[in-house]
Nucleic acid binder design. Sequence first.
DNA 1: TTGAAATCCGACTTCAGGAGTCCGATATTG
DNA 2: CAATATCGGACTCCTGAAGTCGGATTTCAA
Lengths: 134, 134
Amino acid sequence: MFQLSKKVEYGLIALRHMAMHPMGQVFTAKELAREYDVPYELLAKVLQKLARAGIVHSTQGVRGGYALGSDPRAMTVATVIQIIEEEKPMIAECYVEGPDSCSIFDSCTIRKPLGKVQRDLNILFDKMTIHQII
Amino acid sequence: MFQLSKKVEYGLIALRHMAMHPMGQVFTAKELAREYDVPYELLAKVLQKLARAGIVHSTQGVRGGYALGSDPRAMTVATVIQIIEEEKPMIAECYVEGPDSCSIFDSCTIRKPLGKVQRDLNILFDKMTIHQII
DNA sequence: TTGAAATCCGACTTCAGGAGTCCGATATTG
DNA sequence: CAATATCGGACTCCTGAAGTCGGATTTCAA
Ligand code: SF4
Ligand code: SF4
C-alpha cells in the first residue's frame, strides 16, 4: 500500500545514473539493465515513455541509446511519475477517474478534507528533483 | 496508484461520523453502512479492527454497536491507516518487507534518497487528525 | 426463557492492475 | 548487408484489493 511502482523506481534509477555522468552521454537500455539487475524489456518500455515525453533523447541503431534530454535540476519526481504512470499520484480514486468511478461519491464526507492531503502530497513530489537524489 | 484503500476510506468516514456526535454515543455498523452506502460486511470488519486496537469501543448484543474510544483530536490518520492496513504507508516495498523482498536491493541507488520522501510522508499523515476532517 | 439484534471471525470468490515476457518491425552504423 | 539498437503491441502470470457468505457468540427485552 502506497508504494510507488517498479516502473517508476526503475525509471528513477536510470535517470539518476544518467544524471551522474556528463550531459549528453549515451547509455543503452541493455547496459543499464545489466548494471542494476533490472529486467531489460521493462526498463526499455519505461525509457521509451520518457523519450516520448522528451525528458530523455533516444537514438536508434548501432551505437544508439538514451541520453538525458533536459536539466536534472529541473526534472521533478512528480513529472517522472506522471509520465510513467500516465497520471499524477492521486490519493483518491475519484480525483483521477471522476465522480462516476466511486459508488459512494455523493455520500462521501472525506473527499474534501482529503484535498488538503493531496495538495501537500503534490508539493512533496514537486519539490524533489532528480539532481537531489544523487 | 498511490490511492488509499477503500477500507481506510470507509474507516475514516465512520470515525468522522462518530466524532461529529457526542462522545460515547453508540452506532451500529448496519446504520453506518446504510447512511453512507458502504458494504456492510466490509465496514464491519474495519470497525472490528479498530475495536481490537482500542480506538473505538464495541458492545455486542441488542442495542449494541460502536462508540468512539478516544479523543478525535489525538486520533491521527496515520494510526488509522496503520491499524486497518496493519502497516504504515510505505513508499518502497523494501521498507516494509525487508531487503529480501526486492531483487535489486543491493544495486538500488534510490533507496536512501527516498527515505526523505518517506519521512515527509509520515509527517503529513501524522499531523492530520480525525477532528480536522470534520 | 426464548428470540431478535448485534458483534465477531474465518473462509471464500471475483476482479483489476502490476510485473514481467515475447515477438516482430524499424532505424542506424560500419 | 549484417549487427545492434529502439519501438510497440500483445500476451501471461500472479498478487492483493474488494466484496461476499455462513456460522458462532453475546446481550437485552419481552
Ligand atoms: S468519493 Fe470519497 S470514497 Fe469515493 S474515492 Fe473519492 S474520496 Fe474515496
Ligand atoms: S530496494 Fe530500491 S527498488 Fe527495491 S524496493 Fe527498496 S527502493 Fe524500491
